[in-house]
Simulated scan of single mutants.
Amino acid sequence: MTKPLGIILAGGLATRMGGGDKGLLQIGGQSLLERVRDRLAPQVSGLALNANGDAARFKDLDLPVIADSIEGYAGPLAGVLAGLDWAAAQGAEAIVTAAADTPFFPEDLAERLLAASEGQKHPLVLATTPRTGDELLKSGGGKKINRHPTFGLWPVALRDDLRAALNGGLRKVVLWTDRHGGREALFEAEPFDPFFNVNTPEDLKRAEELLR
C-alpha cells in the first residue's frame, strides 16, 4: 500500500480542561497541535485536521480543516469518517489518525500500523500498549493491553459502513473495529506510555516534565 494520508483528531469537547481547544495549549513554547502535526507529517503523504467550529482559529497550522459530517458530538469515529471522506476525494486507500492532545506518540506509528495490516482486505489496525501492574489489577487480570482508539489505520473502502453505523447510534470505536476484523499493533510503554494524552491541567504539567 502507498503511504496513507494523516488526520489529526481535534473534535473533542475538552471538558476536563474546562472546554476550548486542548490542542492549542502549549508545552515547551509550541502548541500540542504543532507537535502532533510535526510528528505525524513525515509519516504520511498528506495531512488534515479534523475540528468543528470556526476553522480560522487553526490558520497558523497551515492545514486543511475538516469538520464532522455527523451532527452533534459523535466522538472520535465521527472524526475518522470525516477523514475518510476527505481521503476518498483524493483517491487515497487509507488514513492514519492521531489525537491532537498526545504529543509523544511513536515516530514510526504509521509504518507499524501498516505492517500489522499486511494481508487484510481492508487495512484496519489500532495502536496498543501493554497494561502494567496497577492497570492489570484494576481490570481484574483481564485484557493485558490498552487499545488507543484515536490512533489507528482506517480503510476508505469501509467509510459508508462507518457512516451507517454512526447514523445508527454506534459510538464506541472498538465495537466497530472488532466487527470488521480489526487488528492491533503493540507499542512499548517504557520509559513512559507514548500515547499519554493531556486531559487535565495536571497532565499538562506532566507533559512539560516529559518534554524536559
Rank of each mutant, 00 (worst) to 15 (best):
P4E: 02
L5G: 08
A10N: 15
A10W: 02
A10Y: 06
G11I: 01
L13H: 03
T15H: 06
G18A: 06
G19R: 04
G20V: 02
Q26T: 15
I27T: 15
I27H: 02
I27S: 07
Q30T: 14
S31G: 11
L33K: 04
R35V: 00
R35S: 10
R39M: 00
D54Q: 12
L61V: 14
L61P: 07
P64F: 00
D68I: 04
D68W: 05
E71L: 05
A74R: 03
G75S: 04
L77T: 01
G79K: 03
L81N: 02
D85F: 10
A94C: 09
A100H: 10
E107N: 09
D108N: 11
L109N: 08
S117R: 06
E118Q: 13
E118C: 07
G119M: 03
L124W: 08
V125N: 11
T132Q: 15
L136D: 14
L136F: 10
G140V: 03
G140L: 07
K143Q: 12
K144I: 01
I145E: 14
R147I: 15
P155G: 12
A157P: 13
D161C: 01
R163F: 00
A164N: 05
A165K: 05
K172V: 14
K172L: 14
T177Q: 03
T177F: 13
T177S: 13
D178T: 10
R183W: 03
R183P: 08
L186M: 15
L186A: 15
F187T: 13
E190W: 14
F195M: 12
F196R: 09
N197C: 14
V198Q: 12
E202S: 14
R212Q: 13
